[in-house]
Each structure stands twice: as structure tokens, then as C-alpha cells.
Design a protein around this nucleic acid. Structure first.
Lengths: 195, 195
DNA sequence: TGATTTATGGACTGATCGGTACTAAATTCC
DNA sequence: GGAATTTAGTACCGATCAGTCCATAAATCA
């Protein structure tokens, strides 16, 4: 049996709460006070359980990545076609234009933009997360090629990088409050390239 | 004649120095000490000449936008064709991959990403700057249509929004340290859509 | 029950934040 | 040469930053 006073909070729920804070405010602007309040734990518990702010951030970013990639993978598998999956994903994202959700962006692209040029762990974790998105897109592209929706002789990695670029750009447009109709039209143009 | 002690620094040069700081570090992470050191002026001079940190940022962002749009306009005018201008612009940007310059990104897209969802002046100035980029792209698209490189019946604003999305995504890819060959291939795919 | 172990609450730390206040310096006008 | 005016230097302000420390609480084990 484990000895000592038992932990009084769910590390899982606390990590999720921290994720929301980093997502909405960014890494540097998220203060430890913001985090403590959202996680509803004491300062000593945070440092005891997570080490420090950077490690907590790494934990939340890895979880976000795991959640996102897992969810997208399931959705891809459940889709009638990989092309339908991509159309659904980009279409839905574009339709967020003007909503409160649009302002949040994606934690991965937010982090890549904020931390990209730093040489630390957080930066490389952001990089890996972007690569994970490209990896998922490549799977989708290859399946779309197998299904005959994309020509088999096209470079799947180049197309996947193009889709990552597209999603990152889409997220930036949404953050800058772009008009919904224009964003939807631009997303449509993005997907037309695949055909 | 103006009375009193004359200013001992060039507001122009100081603004440029501040721009570099905001560009490299972002708005929130750029401390007034960073700014003072780069601008090589005293604290009182900063507040006397620029008001406060936010106003200084607005000044630098407006200048960056003016410089960028002006330079791109001149380059567009000097280009043999609008399509060649776009190809040159996206090609050159993609070729930055891996360089130190790539980590900096673009002050406008950096600001849109960092400040997008805030409701203040800085956020709306970032928004206007993104719109200015779209405006420039629309001019290029319309000229390319007049020159027969883009079908005249296509929606120039939608294409321009698509190009803004593309440049924003390209900048994010560069920041995340993406492989140069892949970035170049993705940029090529972006431009293929126009034809 | 009492020794041991772990978690919690929160006071505290030194550093840094953006911004202000006040004095000294440098100029023009009379 | 003052008087007036503007800039420059810097000490200082309260607030906040990430992180530490320590007394206390809550559990297990003997």
C-alpha cells in the first residue's frame, strides 16, 4: 500500500484544466496563479505533482497532441472515405469563423508560433506535435490515394505538409477574425488542390 | 523654433529597434528593459516619446505593415507578371526554411496569433494588418487575371484570402522547423491552385 | 497509539514587470 | 545672462512573476 496522505485532486482533471489555460493564454502569458485557480489545487501541489511550469506545459501539450491525433485517427477510420474526412475536417474548422472557439486556435499551432524559435524542450515538443499532424495527414492522403480520390503518383508527404500548412493558415485566419464566407471559400480552394 | 532641450535620438531608428524586439520576442514577452536596451534610450525618453508599451507596439506594427505593403507593392509593380511576383514571393519564403530568419516569422502573423482573441487596440491593429496583406494579394490576383494567368471568372477576394492563409501557414511551418524540401513542395502546391 | 510518510495551505523570496516622479542637463527666447 | 521649456537619467513604485519553505493534515504500518 502507498503510505502518507492521499492526493486530494485528480491529476488528470488538473492537467485538463491547465491545458485550457495554456490554450487560451499561451505559454508565457499563463501565470502560475491562473493555472492554480483553474486547476483548483494549491501551489505546493502543483510543484509536487508536476515539477514546474515548463513540465506542466509539456504534459498538457503531449496530452493535447494525444487527444487530437487519437480523435482524428478514429474519425478518419470511421469516415466512408479519407477525402470525406479531410473535407469534413477543413469544412468544420472553416465554419468556426467568427465563433468564440475560433479565437482559441489550436494549442499545437499556437505553441509552434509562440515557441518555435526557442531552443528548449517546449519548442521541440511543439515541433514534434506539428510533425504528428503531418503524419496523420499523410495517412489520410495515402488512404485517399488507395481509394482513388488522389492520384497515386503524387508525393503523399508533400501533400501532407501542404495540408498542415493549410490547417495552420486556417487557424491563423480564424484568429485574425476573418470573414466566414471568405474563410470557407479559401478552405475549399485548399482541398481542390488534392483532386 | 522649438524650445527646450533637443531630442538626442532618432525616433525613427528607435522605432526600428523596438520593431526588432517585438518581432523576435512577441508583444507580451518583450520587456520594457529589452526595448530600452535595443532602442538605446532612457526609460523616460521612451514614455515621453511613445506613451507606453502598447502605443510603441502599435507604432512598430503600423510601420512594419507600411514597410511590408509598400515593398511588396513596388515589387509587384516591377514584376513582369503578377504570377511571377507571387511565385517569387512564396518561393523565396519557402527557401528560408532552416535559416535563422525562418524562426522570426512575420510580425503581422506573429501578432495575429498572439493577440488575435484579445479585444484591445493591438488585436484590431493586427487584424487590420492581415487584411492589408489580403488586399495586396487581391491586387496581384486581379492583375494576374488581367494578364490571363488566372481565369477572369474566379473570385479574386477568395483567392486572395487563400493566399493569405497560405502565407500564414507557410510562416508557421517555417517556425516549426519544417524540412526545406517539403516546405518548397507545399508552397508549389499552393501556387498550382491559382492556375 | 505513535512513528513514518506523503500531500496541502499559504507565507515568503528575490527578481522582474510596466510605469511614475523628480532632478539635472541642454536648448531657445528675451 | 537669466527665464522658460523640453529631454535625459535614474531612483523608485506597487504589482506580479516563478519558485521555495515549513508547519500542519491525513494517511499507513507496527
Amino acid at each position: 500500500m502507498t503510505r502518507g496522505r492521499p492526493i486530494a485532486f485528480s491529476p488528470d482533471a488538473a492537467t485538463n484544466a491547465a491545458m485550457q489555460v495554456f490554450w487560451a493564454r499561451g505559454y508565457e502569458s499563463a501565470s502560475t496563479r491562473d493555472l492554480l485557480e483553474a486547476m483548483n489545487i494549491s501551489r505546493s501541489s502543483l510543484y509536487q505533482a508536476f515539477g514546474n511550469k515548463e513540465q506542466l506545459f509539456l504534459e498538457t501539450l503531449r496530452r493535447y497532441r494525444g487527444n487530437l491525433i487519437g480523435q482524428l485517427n478514429r474519425r478518419l477510420e470511421a469516415s466512408p472515405s479519407a477525402m470525406a474526412f479531410l473535407e469534413g475536417l477543413f469544412g468544420e474548422t472553416a465554419r468556426e469563423a467568427g465563433s468564440e472557439r475560433a479565437g482559441l486556435g489550436c494549442l499545437i499551432f499556437n505553441s509552434a508560433s509562440e515557441l518555435g524559435q526557442r531552443g528548449d524542450l517546449a519548442a521541440s515538443e511543439a515541433r514534434r506535435s506539428v510533425e504528428a499532424i503531418t503524419g496523420l495527414f499523410q495517412e489520410a492522403v495515402m488512404r485517399a490515394q488507395a481509394e482513388g480520390d488522389i492520384a497515386a503518383d503524387r508525393d503523399s508527404l508533400a501533400l501532407a505538409t501542404y495540408l498542415t500548412l493549410g490547417m495552420a493558415g486556417l487557424r491563423t485566419l480564424l484568429k485574425s477574425g476573418a470573414d466566414r464566407a471568405q474563410v470557407e471559400a479559401a478552405a475549399q480552394l485548399l482541398l481542390d488542390t488534392l483532386r
